[in-house]
Computed example of a mutant assay.
Amino acid sequence: MRKLILIAAILTLGVTVKAQEAGKVEKPKIYNPEANAKADIAAAVKTASAQHKNVLLQIGGNWCSWCYLFNDLVTQNAELNKHMNDNYVVLHVNYSKENTNDAVLAGLGYPQRFGFPVFVILDGKGNRLHTQNSSYLEEGKGHSKAKVMEFFQNWSPTALDPKTYAPKAK
């Protein structure tokens, strides 16, 4: 009798796991391991220059849960999404076992040393302005909307333009 109960339990568990796997919705791939990162960055810089924006490189991989958490926050929060798109040309740069983009990342000062995701801000000429360790933007089990907004604001073209930014003298 115990053997029958055990067999029934194992079969039920197997059916439950298969049902859960069948019901899983696969996340959209936000990183493309086959992309030519160097060419894509050059195109993003050209677009940023024409639109008077900076480039926001989000470096990570489809394997990275924190990369998806950040991407979900900035695409689903209307205020963050608007500020991001008003000020940046956004490009996802892949880092995975399929393609680590070593040469590109070397040219960006090895941002992968901070973990993933990691963000690199380029100006409209392709100059690296800043590398942001994403752990400073975290809060709890995700990213802080306020910290991300501050990051976006601090590295926007307006914030970096000496004509529009003048600290008040005391």
Score class of each variant (00 low, 15 high):
160 L>A: 01
113 R>T: 11
153 Q>E: 11
9 A>V: 14
152 F>L: 15
68 Y>G: 00
47 T>I: 01
80 L>K: 13
130 H>T: 05
68 Y>C: 02
57 L>M: 05
115 G>N: 13
116 F>I: 07
73 L>V: 03
7 I>R: 03
149 M>Q: 12
132 Q>V: 07
7 I>C: 14
96 S>I: 02
138 E>T: 10
67 C>Q: 06
66 W>D: 08
101 N>M: 05
118 V>L: 11
124 G>K: 13
154 N>Y: 03
129 L>Q: 15
19 A>R: 00
132 Q>Y: 11
43 A>M: 08
153 Q>H: 07
79 E>R: 11
71 N>R: 01
128 R>E: 07
38 K>T: 10
141 K>I: 00
61 G>E: 13
92 H>T: 08
108 L>P: 05
11 L>R: 05
150 E>K: 15
170 K>T: 08
143 H>E: 01
113 R>L: 11
87 N>I: 02
112 Q>Y: 04
99 N>H: 14
21 E>P: 01
160 L>V: 03
140 G>R: 10
165 Y>Q: 08
111 P>L: 13
99 N>V: 00
112 Q>E: 14
18 K>R: 10
122 L>S: 08
90 V>I: 12
67 C>V: 03
76 Q>H: 15
6 L>W: 09
151 F>E: 03
9 A>H: 06
68 Y>I: 00
41 I>F: 04
55 V>K: 09
62 N>S: 06
152 F>K: 09
152 F>P: 10
86 D>K: 03
66 W>N: 12
163 K>D: 15
119 F>S: 10
15 V>T: 10
9 A>K: 01
121 I>G: 10
84 M>D: 02
81 N>T: 03
169 A>K: 15
27 K>F: 14
76 Q>P: 09
165 Y>H: 13
44 A>E: 11
135 S>H: 10
